[in-house]
Design a protein around this nucleic acid. Sequence first.
RNA 1: GUGGCCGUAGCUCAGUCGGUAGAGUCCCAGAUUGUGAUUCUGGUUGUCGCGGGUUCGAGCCCCGUCGGCCACC
Length: 406
Amino acid sequence: MKFQLIQQCGHARRGRLTFARGTVETPAFMPVGTYGTVKAMKPEEVRGTGAQILLGNTFHLMLRPGEQAVRELGGLHRFMHWDGPILTDSGGFQVWSLSGLRKITEEGVKFASPVNGDRILLTPERSIEVQHALGADIVMQFDECTPYPATEQQARKSMELSARWAARCKTAHEALVPETRGGASARGLGPQPQARGGQGLPLAVLESPSALFGIVQGGMYEGLRRESLQRLTETGFDGYALGGLSVGESEDERLHVLDAIGHGLPPDRPHYLMGVGTPRDLVQAVARGIDMFDCVMPTRNARNGHLFTHAGVVRIRNSAHKTDGRPLDERCDCYTCRNYSRAYLHHLDKCKEILGAQLNTLHNLHYYQNVMQRIRAAVEGGDYAAFVADFLGSPEGGQASPAVPA
RNA sequence: GUGGCCGUAGCUCAGUCGGUAGAGUCCCAGAUUGUGAUUCUGGUUGUCGCGGGUUCGAGCCCCGUCGGCCACC
């Protein structure tokens, strides 16, 4: 992986990530495909929304179907028929989300499998091994996603554990990527994403050493965040992520952490804000130096009839849309908005029809990519601050502004 | 004609020993941030078929009546 900084506007950055499998324009949003699928979408549809990279999950794929099965079937890319880059989460988020089913020790985390109750041990080494077996283009360090709220003492303990695990992940990763790393990674492969046939995939895996990202923890404490970053940069990573956010804290707290740490991240590496967020979160985080995002919000909310539009949030389930013949978002040119009425989407949602989830997800992903496109254009335009002010003042940037039909 | 069973929320039904009614669904609204999500949370809705009686008090007990279903003549 290669990261190229194209333009900067304040702390906002316009960049490009180059992988053997393709290029990612940043700031970028990565749809979440936990189980090797972006729920309700075919990969071609996801690609059609403008997405250039997906997120997959170590924990879930390790349990089912198992990383060896995926490896034998040609790696995650071929398995799920997505030929672009994939970032895999390490399982660190499940340390938080499955908190009732696990026990943390220095060695790693013991989980009770949510699939069948089996006891499994996930260590930094094991997580890296699994991510390599899956064929990830970006491998995330195994971390503990610090719960919220946490006392400074708890956050410190958690951050220090994540930092030690980060170093172990680096060692494990390097053992699996013997070749020269960094600039040589994209050697001779160019940025063509179209390996359509798929025959070339195993080869591509071999010739594409994956990147390893470290994760900054430290809860809501500025000092701990800085210390975490310091430790990570001493170890050295291909990219730096901010973890432990969007776990229940307020927007103010989130922005406070970003203000404290965002622009202090190594400038020559990509900056990834994990698990965030709402459209206004994205816009604001870019202003603080973030290049990459992932979030389940557009996909999960779509399945629940919570749709993002240029005019703000539309809860398509609400009876107000029952007889509304207008498109969901008049300023959107996605397949859903071009061909269907709000009344029809409302109908599908009420009937719990599968197509409703599909059309809604397609739109939300399209909208998110559209926001990213506008963000990138705004950075290129040279007045990102104006864009932020404009966006936050508009219905789509509002805290919670349901678009009530006239 | 005789006997039995059943009438409770828009729908399907529960309701103990008599203490002025609940569930699911539907409907209305909300939540969702590195997916344990086709998920979760909250809310509205009653002539307890109708009329009498007993009782301090009846969805429940008694009488009558209307409607539906079943069995037998």
